[in-house]
Structure formats: C-alpha cells, structure tokens
Amino acid sequence: MNPLARKRLTRAALNTAGVLVFLFAVFPVYWMVSTSFKANDQIFTTSFIPFPTHFTVEHVERVLTEGVAGNPIWVYMRNSAIVALGTVLVGSAFALLAATAVARFRFRGRTAFLVTLLVVQMIPCEALVIPLFLNVKRLGLYDNLLGLIVIQVGITLPFGVWMLRTFVAAVPRSLEEAAWIDGASRFTTFRKVLFPLVAPGLVATSIFSFITAWNDLIFALVLMKESSGYTMPVALQYFFGQRGTDWGAIMATSTLMTLPVIAFFLLVQRRMVSGLVAGAVKG
C-alpha cells in the first residue's frame, strides 16, 4: 500500500472510532430527550423508534402542571435551585477567603490545614449522613432547605478551596505589590486586583459546587420530610412504582434536571478539567 493511501486509511479509522465514541456517549442522553417527546404508544413498544414521529409535549406539560407526589415539578426545581444557589453563594465566599489565605500567606498551621483539606476529601460524604441527620434534627433544621444548604456548603468547601487556591496562586504577586506601592489597602487590593483576576476560577469552582448540590440525592432524601420541600433527585424517585412506570414523565423530568447541568458543563469544561487535575497534581 502506498503511504498516502495508508495515511488516508488511518485517518478514516480514527474518525470512525471518534464517531463511535460520540455515539456511545450521546445516545443515552439523546434517548432520554427523545423519549420525553414521544407519545405513549411510541414509548411502550418493543420496536425501535429513533425519532418521535408523533412529537408531543404532553409529558413535559404533565410534569410541569400535575407533577408527582402532590406538587408540580417546578416546585422541586425551585427547591433544587435554592439549595444549589445558596450553597454557591456561601460556599464560594468562604472558599475564596480560605484559598487566599493558603495561596498568599506562609503561616503556622498552613500545612496542617492543607493536609486536613486533602484527607477530608477522602472521607465518603455518604458516610456522614447519619451524624449530620442527627445534628440537623437537634438544631431544628430538619425538613428545612436551610439545613440542606449548610450541609452542602460543608461537602463542597474542601474541594472548592483546593481548586481555587491554584487560581489564586496563579495571579502574580507583583500585581498586588504594585497596588500596595500605590498606597492601596489590603482590602482594596483584594477587591480591585486579586478578585477580578481570580473571578474565572471562582466561576468554575462555583459551578462545580452548584452541580454537586444540584445532583445530591442522599441528603435531600434523609433531611426533607414534606414533599413540598423535595429536590429534583428525590422527586424523581416518586415516579417509580405508582401504577406502572410512566417513562414519558420520568424522562421529561430527567431532561429538565439534566439540561442546565450540561449547559454549565459545556460553558466551563476546559477550566474544570485543568482545575481538577492541576489542583490535584501540582500541590
């Protein structure tokens, strides 16, 4: 075979492999979305219907009005959004302060703090459900979204600090020194020099926390009692088991829950990867 033909063949093989990977990754997502727009006779069938030829929004409409467990889905979306946004607002402020401390200062106990951060991330948060449940109950925050926010702040913070400190460390010190020379205070320097430069990293970290809080099932399951306080992952469980499985509604709800996250991911994907890996590798 001549080299040119060989090269073309390799290229074709690589592209085919690429398309196969793409299909493997995307098909389940596509199937979720397409199921939520199919009429029931096209869902409950043993044949394969690639596109919803009887396109319908009845499932989306049904979950948004009738919903499940006594509330329309938007109630659960709102609860999820409250928890996730609350976590991000409180968590990223705390994370930024702590990240500035470890990235900008050398002080006694710094190494101990970093080691703690690292070890704490190895603890499975699923294992903390029991004591956190008892504490939340004792504090009177049971069945209250605030309790969920507090816990999510705790769960997302170690990683937030870990990731954010590399972004803070990447800002050249000389910029801050220049501001000091011009007579700026520490706070002004932080606000006008460091903060704008760290902002992209802060966005990435915030999105990571948002997604963690948005996705959580176990804490919401344990801590929320009344159905009006359920978050999306909990509400989704209630579609199963009642008079057969309503796959149209389940897939419509799953789609509503997934799309914002996919949008966020595509927005910050590059920074997220570098943050995760660099944050972990460089130390």
Binding site: F22, M32, I211, W214, P233, M251
Partner: peptide, 24 residues
C-alpha cells in the same frame, strides 16, 4: 465534536444516569 459529545455524558446527574440506563 467528540469532546462536546462525551462532555454531555459526563454532565448527566447521577440520578438521571440511573433513570436513563434503567430505561435503556
């Protein structure tokens, strides 16, 4: 093109991963 595809799989919340594969 492939990265956008695989990113959308990564982004699916665990609970929705469960419902999708249970349905498949």
């Amino acid at each position: 093109f492939v990265i956008i595809g695989i990113m959308s799989a990564w982004a699916v919340p665990p609970v929705a991963q469960g419902t999708i594969w249970r349905w498949l």
